[in-house]
Design a protein around this nucleic acid. Structure first.
Length: 301
DNA sequence: TCTGGTCAAGGTGGT
DNA sequence: ACCACCTTGACCAGA
């Protein structure tokens, strides 16, 4: 079990999310942003590794506008060496990473142009992980997408489109349940049809299916992962206690997290904490999980 | 230097 | 038909 957080470290000055407006695009601007993002990523990974936080979601902004027609820089060649160095650091420190293209990436849209753009966006994400030289346990997670008035045909379209994707994308792609349209059960149907591994989002699952059965949900999601995919991971977030519906909590609630750990024993999995205060909650979760036999400690050297 | 409106992309659901 | 919300940060124009 590794524990991590997505994209942003709130305490460090380092960031890997430097961007700019499309209107201000220039090759120089792009190169500056990527350089700063790679430096920032390295800094965040070092911060994390020193604290036993060995799971991290790399921001899709690492190369701004990578799949947009405006892109005119051969960024893969330009930054090959820097990506390779960071990748070596990731491997040497037994870190696992993932990426999560945002909600505009829809492989089941009836609109072929939207699918084509989504495929390009997925290809970009695969290229980043390939440039880092990371194995197939480092995943790209997306949602099933829209319903378009008919869930059965929307799922069938997802499956057909998934099968048509290049192996380079398919081998890293995993699908996550959402809190509006596609429940865990829906994602398992998708898995049955095409073999894609399923990421459990613990909060979304509770929203759509009620408060019970976390372990069963996890066991069913875990069964969709093959050896080459590594152990499964989950997205863990929690509702703000007195906030509006859907509002995410500011900070982890350790007793609740401990219950989650004990409830899911002995299944081994990694945990992505989608919580506002990021590395601060991750450090608390690492401390809480330190007592757990599943928690991963790399050999020190 | 500070502030707040706005940012590539789509879909859903409420009015 | 239209608009807010998604999750939230941070860019950038205008003061």
């Amino acid at each position: 079990m590794r524990i991590g957080y997505p994209c942003i470290n709130r305490g460090l000055a380092c960031r890997c999310t430097h961007g700019f407006r499309l209107a201000s695009y220039s090759p120089h601007r792009l190169e500056e942003a990527v350089r700063a993002n790679l430096d920032g990523l390295q800094g965040i990974l070092e911060f994390n590794a020193a604290r036993g936080i060995l799971f991290f979601r790399i921001s899709s902004d690492i190369v701004p506008f990578a799949s947009h027609p405006v892109m005119s820089v051969r960024w893969q060649e330009r930054f090959r060496g820097r990506f390779a160095r960071i990748g070596r650091y990731i491997r040497d420190h037994a870190i696992r990473v993932n990426m999560h293209p945002d909600q505009f990436t829809l492989i089941n849209s009836p609109d072929e142009a939207i699918f084509a753009r989504s495929r390009e966006e997925l290809l970009y994400h695969a290229r980043v992980l390939d440039l880092l030289g990371l194995d197939l346990t480092n995943k790209i997670q997306i949602h099933v997408g829209g319903v378009y008035g008919d869930k059965d045909s929307a799922i069938a379209r997802f499956v057909a489109r998934y099968r048509s994707l290049p192996e380079r994308i398919r081998r890293r792609l995993v699908v996550e349940n959402d809190h509006v349209s596609y429940s865990l059960e829906d994602c398992l149907r998708v898995h049955q049809a095409c073999g894609i591994p399923v990421v459990l989002d613990v909060l979304h699952q509770r929203v759509l299916r009620g408060p019970f059965g976390v372990k069963k949900a996890l066991a069913r999601a875990a069964a969709t992962w093959k050896g080459v995919d590594g152990i499964p991971f989950v997205d863990y977030s929690l509702q703000a206690e007195n906030g509006l519906r859907g509002a995410h909590a500011e900070s982890i609630r350790v007793p609740e997290f401990r219950r989650f750990l004990s409830l899911t024993r002995p299944i081994d999995f990694d945990v992505m904490l989608e919580i506002k205060d990021k590395e601060s909650s991750a450090a608390k979760a690492v401390a809480a999980a330190g007592e757990d036999k599943r928690f991963f400690r790399p050999a020190i050297n």
